[in-house]
């Protein structure tokens, strides 16, 4: 590890954290699609609004998990700093 100094490693960690939160794209698209279908379902059947909303929220929360894993990796890289010399 002699040829790399600490600043280089922190810089690379910051770039890695930025790349890790790209994982947020997927859940964003997925949650938007779920919300869109939820809205159209409410438009078709306004009586079932409560059930549709709770099912939609449950699905969105499960879809959100992958994005949160990316966020966690970014947090670890930025704040816990696992790569120290």
């Amino acid at each position: 590890m002699g040829e790399f100094n600490q600043a280089f490693i922190y810089g690379c960690s910051a770039i890695g954290a930025g790349l890790a939160v790209i994982a947020g794209i997927g859940p964003g698209v997925g949650q938007g699609i779920a919300a869109g279908y939820g809205a159209s379902a409410v438009g078709r059947n306004p009586g079932a609004k409560g059930d549709i909303t709770s099912t939609m929220l449950l699905g969105q929360a499960v879809a959100e998990t992958t994005g949160l894993y990316g966020l966690l990796i970014a947090m670890l890289l930025l704040f816990v700093k696992p790569f120290k010399i």
Binding site: A61, T65, Y69
Partner: peptide, 8 residues
Amino acid sequence: LRLFANVL
């Protein structure tokens, strides 16, 4: 992890 990461 879902609960933790959301609140965090």
